[in-house]
């Protein structure tokens, strides 16, 4: 089977974030985040709740608006320019904690809606690619069902297929396993691992330490709107530099 793999990119660094600040009214959620991601890198972002990690990746495709600093994705600066916003959203795929499938559309319609309307593919082509992805995430037989008829794990895999069919250059995962029952986490993690190994650029916010250890190129630890530590997974888990990281790891690992 032929897959349309990750779209090629001709830049050295696909995501550049410089000094990103974000306020919710008075509360400063991001306090100057800097991050550079190379194509094909897999980055896992960890941190306690409320540390701004979700806000950060939501800023990258403009679900939240950052107020200071700059974000450049695939050479396009994320500004108020509506063309850039649309362009970046097309190139950055996002998978949500709550799946956010469209309940009134079938699985296939869910997946093909955006390619047909945004990428201007023909319906046949879109359905063909959609079926390939559904097969790859392991649920081709569910194509004509409604999301409500699927289990949580299946729904999340559909959401991934929906994102991947758009052929994004960057994949972002926002705690994709947190809303799942324990026995369904594995099926989703398997797909994520598979994607990581096929060369996708991935930014994942997750609490799955195993995943981070196994596939991440880099682990980023955020706290209070800042990046506290940036390290390779081995170093991060076995030999953290910062006190805050040690505390976090001890709380996560010994409970």
């Amino acid at each position: 089977m032929k897959f349309e793999g990750p779209a090629a990119s001709f830049v050295d660094e696909i995501i550049i974030c410089e000094n990103v600040h974000k306020w919710f009214d008075e509360f400063e959620a991001l306090r100057g985040v800097d991050l550079r991601v190379k194509p094909g890198e897999v980055i896992v972002i960890l941190g306690p709740s409320g540390s701004g990690k979700s806000t950060f990746i939501r800023c990258i495709n403009r679900l939240e608006e950052h107020q200071e600093g700059r974000i450049i994705v695939d050479g396009i600066e994320l500004s108020h320019d509506i063309r850039n916003i649309q362009e970046i959203r097309r190139e950055v795929g996002m998978v949500f904690q709550q799946f956010n499938l469209f309940p009134h559309l079938t699985v296939l319609e869910n997946i093909t809606l955006a390619p047909i309307n945004v990428r201007k593919w023909t319906r046949d082509h879109a359905e063909e690619v959609a079926m390939q992805w559904l097969t790859r995430v392991g649920i081709p037989e569910q194509a004509n069902k409604y999301p409500g008829q699927l289990s949580g794990g299946q729904q999340q895999r559909v959401a991934m297929a929906r994102t991947l069919t758009m052929q994004p250059k960057v994949l972002m995962f926002d705690e994709p396993t947190s809303a799942l029952d324990p026995e369904m986490i594995k099926e989703v993690l398997d797909v994520m691992r598979d994607l990581a190994h096929s060369g996708y650029t991935i930014l994942a916010v997750t609490h799955e330490m195993g995943f981070a250890r196994e596939v991440a190129n880099r682990v980023i630890f955020m706290d209070a709107g800042k990046i506290v530590e940036e390290n390779t997974p081995d170093e991060f888990f076995n030999n953290p530099k910062e006190e805050r990281t040690k505390l976090f790891l001890s709380q996560i690992l010994h409970h």
Binding site: R62, L63, R89, G93, M94, N100, L101, R162
Partner: peptide
């Protein structure tokens, strides 16, 4: 309608009209 529906359509790159019309 949950806010996630808006976010999902935004993140897929649908524009305002499409978001309203289809989702």
């Amino acid at each position: 309608i949950p806010v996630g529906q808006y976010e999902a359509s935004d993140s897929l790159g649908l524009n305002g009209f499409q978001k309203m019309r289809f989702i």
